[in-house]
Write a protein that binds this DNA or RNA. Structure first.
Lengths: 75, 75
DNA sequence: AAAGTGGTTATCATATATGATAACAAAGGC
DNA sequence: GCCTTTGTTATCATATATGATAACCACTTT
């Protein structure tokens, strides 16, 4: 697994978790205090997010950060 | 838990895992292809690392990235 | 005392993440 | 048809992570 694949996996995971909660990118972004465009960038794996960004998302999704990045085996 | 505390927790976790393997910051940094000063910065929680940085470290420690950031309940 | 080891901190240049805005496309409802 | 919603993409300025070097401290060894 290279870093690009990891970013994509994490993005996919965020998307799945978000959709399972029935909310839009707009909603999740707002809960994290940023714009929907930035959430799209993350979900599509087009950025290399920092821990703080992932942490905000995990809080908004009400999970722990390790659950958010648990993509290597599980998915 | 705020982001500063999270960074510190992750740094502490990296340190514990590194020491459990009996290697120096120098060694771990080299395995990640960066300098010991940068590893010190991460272990002391003075930076907000990106996923790619955490991934390199997790690879060097031979664990998954979720295990590396599993600091909120476990420690 | 001098040299080596392990870690910290400051500083710098460069790359890039973030935050924001706007334009766009696709799909659905009116 | 038009409007709204949802998501994508491009672009920009700004903040900051990264990569590197060097100086430093504490400790140990010779």
């Amino acid at each position: 697994m290279n870093i690009d694949q990891l970013q994509i996996k994490i993005g996919e995971r965020i998307r799945i978790l978000r959709e399972s909660r029935g909310i839009t990118q707009q909603d999740l972004a707002a809960a994290c205090n940023f714009e929907k465009a930035n959430m799209s960038r993350i979900e599509t794996g087009r950025t290399n997010p920092t821990v703080s960004t992932l942490y905000k998302i995990s809080q908004a999704l009400e999970i722990t950060i390790d659950e958010l990045v648990d993509v290597e085996v599980a998915n």
